[in-house]
Amino acid sequence: MESLKVYILIANRVYNDGIRSGLGLAVENHYAYPVIMNGEFPRFSDYMSENIAWIMDMEGQVYSCGAEAPTELPADAEIANISLEELGEAMRDADVIIPYGLPKQSHEPPAACSE
């Protein structure tokens, strides 16, 4: 079975589940590169941070494109910064590109979304 390079692009705060989906492919021996676009970061729960760290252990990487990646995440998780141009060049080598979920919203989430 060939190991594929898979980029998962996350443009909407609700769809950071793309990271879990990337981990699912990493455990199937693929290289997973979830990319959080324009600062649409998840809440960094222990579960989320462990998933990010696990992707790194499986030779993948979570990236931030368009916003500075947060530092000092739990569980030794790291998110690497990548520019839009660098992302485009990197994805030329991708076997699979997955724009995940929904596009970015026009408005900031209301308070009702905070829980």
Partner: peptide, 10 residues
């Protein structure tokens, strides 16, 4: 599980 996605890619 997400393994079905892996099967699709394979």
């Amino acid at each position: 599980t997400q393994a079905f996605h892996g099967a699709i890619l394979d």
